[in-house]
Amino acid sequence: MPIVIEQLSHTYLPGSALAYPALSDITLTVSDGEFLGVIGHTGSGKSTLIQHFNGLLLPTSGSVHVDGLDTREKKLRKQIRSLVGMVFQYPEYQLFEETVERDVAFGPKNMGLDDAEAATRVSEALCLVGLDPAEFAEKSPFELSGGEKRRAALAGILAMRPKYLVLDEPMACLDPRGRREILALIESLRRDFGTGIVMVSHSMDDVAMYADRIAVLDKGSLYLVGSPEEVFSRGAELIEMGLNLPQATQLVRALRKRGVPIEHDYFRMDELTKELVGRWRHER
């Protein structure tokens, strides 16, 4: 069963002089095991949107259903939050326990799992994020390196075994290898466990590489949703919104401007490379 968002609007401080409409009339479905990329300029409503996925924010109008459960129902919220894992930007800032093990166990314990089950979940999650439980479980989360903290925080969400994982800029401030490792982890969750992924990112290349579909937000509205191909073929509109394009798409546009007729809207560098090499060989 999917996450179904219907005609969602959200206004901050409604009814006051400072009322600020952040989202208007958004209809969107996230299917089981799908990888949805969410892109949009800062202030386009991305953060507001994703906080609706697990009822941290509630619709001013419209509705959000997670596997048929309405987020407006207070009784269902705990269940919804264990279905939808939410990884905020810089999740390492949520670490608080004395040991990594206890911190990762926070979510499972809140779900009401017993100690034995929680312990299983903790070591499973730590292994997933590449932190060896034997080495890290007893450490204080505050003595880890930046990249390890990020992964420990991620483990804290994965230990709840969410069916959907919502991530806000999960690679921010990591070095190139750190970024690759986190992306590989997210991709493997989808592949091995069928976890549905919603990822907000400013990195068009990452979104282009992994997403099945991309939702483009602009000024609080859903401007466009479609396959990477559909979305990035409308490069001019994205640039108009202040967004970047994947580097392959940038090159395709630059080549067309120079009179090189490339018909296909490439958005992955490996495919574009193949095309260019093919052309070169053909010309010879």
């Binding site: 940038q250 630059a254 090189v260 052309r279 070169w280 010309e283």
Partner: peptide, 14 residues
């Protein structure tokens, strides 16, 4: 960079 490479590629291909 993107522009420098586009120049080179278009020259090579044409």
């Amino acid at each position: 960079t993107c522009d420098a490479l586009a120049d080179e590629i278009s020259r090579a291909l044409t």
